[in-house]
Simulated assay, not measured.
Amino acid sequence: MHPSSKPYANEQYSEAQPPPYGNRPIATGFTPAAGAQYAAPQALLPWSTGLFDCCADGRNCCLTCCCPCVTFGQIAEIIDEGTMSGTASAVIYAVINATTGHACLYACLYRQKMRNKYRLEESPCDDWCVHCFCESCALCQEYRELQNRGYDMVMGWQGNLQRNQGVAMTLTPPTIEPVMKR
Rank of each mutant, 00 (worst) to 15 (best):
L139K: 07
L120A: 14
Q141A: 07
A39K: 08
K181G: 12
S4F: 11
C125K: 14
E11Q: 09
V179K: 10
R111W: 06
A56L: 13
T170G: 00
A56V: 09
R163Y: 15
R24H: 09
E77P: 05
L161Y: 02
L161W: 09
Q165Y: 05
Y151I: 01
P173R: 06
M169V: 05
D127H: 13
C108V: 01
N23W: 12
E15H: 10
P68W: 13
G166M: 01
N116F: 11
T172D: 08
M84R: 10
Y110R: 04
N97D: 12
V154A: 08
R119V: 03
L51M: 10
L44I: 01
M84H: 11
Q141W: 12
K6V: 05
R144D: 09
A56F: 13
P174C: 02
S4Y: 11
A88Y: 01
Q112G: 01
T64H: 09
H131R: 04
P173W: 04
W47F: 13
C62D: 12
A43P: 06
Y13P: 02
N60W: 15
L51P: 04
C140E: 10
R115E: 14
S5C: 12
H102W: 11
A168I: 02
T175A: 06
I26D: 04
L51D: 01
T31D: 14
S85C: 01
G150C: 10
M84I: 12
D57T: 02
Q141R: 15
S14H: 02
T49L: 13
W157Q: 05
R111A: 08
S48E: 05
N97K: 12
P46W: 05
C125L: 09
Q162V: 03
R24V: 06
A36C: 11
G82M: 01
M169Q: 12
L44N: 03
S5F: 12
T99D: 05
A76G: 06
M180H: 07
A39L: 07
E11W: 06
I78L: 15
C65G: 02
